[in-house]
């Protein structure tokens, strides 16, 4: 008898399991959420591409059994842009971390969002650089500790979803490792959305961020997410006082800005001669 579920058998490279992530790491939960979203959307594996950068989060591309590419640090969105432009039929999903997408790849993030290219970026946001030993990242809250901030981080944290929205992303959502159903739904809708979609998923890192900041075990960190994250519909019904200290989980905003590949195709279609067209298409 197989020692894993049908979903895991179908969507992961089971010979690579158990995975490398620490006990209680939220990345394992979020990777499963991605697999469930693929399953629910019945995406053809041959037409699905997962692109990742570098970091704990980006190991996910190694475990998911679709077309995957593990790229250089911060550049996942740049590689994904090339893949999507070369073959717009593909569903291109980028799995990245808070450091990978907001620090090292910060410019790729804002320009992919500004361009509104039809990619789905899923951020496994664990508030630290876990793989390299717990240095503070662009999403480490002010005052929290990291290996490189032993007296507390003096920087303010990025809200990656708001950063993407203000850069022009036409779909942004919030997920957490605790709120699996809402997160799966946010990923599903992000994949279906035509345009740049970003799902900022709060992961948990009990090994570094949690330990350095006395947040307790993985269970304690998930309980914090449960008690502070409120599904969007319920959050909207709260009074401003009740919203204090809480954050909404689910879709944050969605609009229909023009999508990059459609605009690009329009230029190709407008070419009058074959010679002009060949400047765009290289077979």
């Amino acid at each position: 008898m197989r020692e894993y579920s049908d979903l895991i058998y179908k969507y992961t490279r089971v010979d690579h399991l158990p995975h490398i992530w620490c006990a209680g790491c939220g990345n394992g939960i979020l990777t499963r959420d991605v697999a469930v979203a693929f399953e629910r959307l019945k995406l053809e594996r041959e037409k699905t591409v997962v692109v990742s950068g570098i970091g704990c989060s980006s190991r996910a591309a190694g475990y998911l059994d679709v077309n995957t590419i593990h790229t250089t640090h911060g550049r996942a969105l740049a590689f994904a842009t090339g893949i999507k432009l070369a073959n717009p039929e593909l569903h291109v999903v980028v799995i990245t971390g808070d450091g990978d997408c907001a620090a090292i790849g910060g410019n790729h993030l804002i320009h992919a969002a500004r361009r509104n290219i039809d990619l789905t970026a899923i951020v496994f946001n664990n508030n630290t650089y876990g793989m390299t030993g717990g240095q503070y990242s662009p999403t480490t809250p002010t005052g929290d500790k990291g290996t490189t901030a032993p007296y507390g981080n003096i920087d303010r944290a990025f809200d990656i979803a708001r950063l993407a929205e203000s850069s022009g992303a036409s779909y942004t959502a919030r997920g957490t490792a605790y709120h699996t159903l809402e997160t799966i739904q946010a990923i599903e809708r992000g994949i279906l959305h035509k345009g740049f979609s970003l799902i900022d998923c709060y992961s948990v890192c009990p090994t570094y961020y949690g330990r350095k900041n006395k947040k307790g075990s993985a269970v304690d960190m998930l309980i914090w997410q449960r008690d502070h994250g409120v599904p969007r519909a319920r959050y909207d019904a709260l009074s401003p006082e009740e919203r204090q200290g809480k954050f909404p989980v689910g879709i944050l905003q969605q609009n229909d800005y023009p999508e990059f590949i459609e605009q690009y195709q329009r230029i190709i279609d407008g070419c009058e001669t074959e010679q002009e067209r060949s400047a765009f298409i290289h077979d």
């Binding site: 894993y4 579920s5 895991i8 158990p18 790491c25 939220g26 394992g28 939960i29 499963r32 993985a218």
Partner: peptide, 13 residues
């Protein structure tokens, strides 16, 4: 438990 197991170690079949 299956939904939140980070290690895919517990599941229904």
């Amino acid at each position: 438990c299956e939904q939140r197991c980070p290690d895919y170690a517990i599941f229904l079949r």
